[in-house]
Amino acid sequence: MQGLAIKIEHLSFHYKDQTQLFSDLNLSIDKGERFGLFGPNGAGKTTLMSLMTGLISFTEGNIQLLDHSIKTKNKQVNKLFGFVPQDFSFYEELTPLENLEFFGAWSDLNKQEIIKRSTELFEILNLTSVKNKQVRKFSGGMKRKVNLAIGVIHQPQLLFLDEPTVGVDVQTRQEIINYLEKLNETGTTLIYTSHQLNEAEELCNKIALIDEGKIIAFDTLDNLLVKYNKENLEALFVDLTGKTYKDQ
């Protein structure tokens, strides 16, 4: 698979009445990658993800998703990617099926496509038996799976995942990771952020470490471990970002 999934050029951004968070940031992510974005709290991971998904607008620089500028063709680009936010982003009063019907329609799918994709996803994520029960009665793990199903219903070429497995048990986490790997094999580029570094080692083939709005490391995991002579991602993370708390 050739070409760039994401190209960020000379991006500068700051929140209103706050100091500059990103200054002349550049980043390129290839299509088909399983890209992990890591950093301490307050480093700018969520802000960068919000900028890439168009949730926050920016004035300086450019972001291209699959060759479309996010500034100018926002709604067109929105068809190409999926987003799985950290918060449960669905209607808890509805059932998984009703949620997928609604979000599927908003993702430009027709009724037949929604039915087909819902059935597939419920099978893959083991939600078939509960598809008609209100989500509010679900466990955290089941809610995570519904959250993921909604993000991928329209088979996006690019999938943003913000802490997709936080608060779930080992079995559910493995189930989600397995699904994401399969999804990537079919050509979906994954942009993933998490504090679960062991999980990231398992899933990601390219990594960026970000701290105070700057990318301090960017390469494959193996190359980074060799370059910094570290055993694992956690050791590398502590070495590069320090041991002091960053979210004070």
């Binding site: 067109q76 068809k79 990617f81």
Partner: peptide, 8 residues
């Protein structure tokens, strides 16, 4: 948040 990222 999700609604804002959808093409609607």
């Amino acid at each position: 948040i999700r609604l804002k990222t959808l093409p609607t």
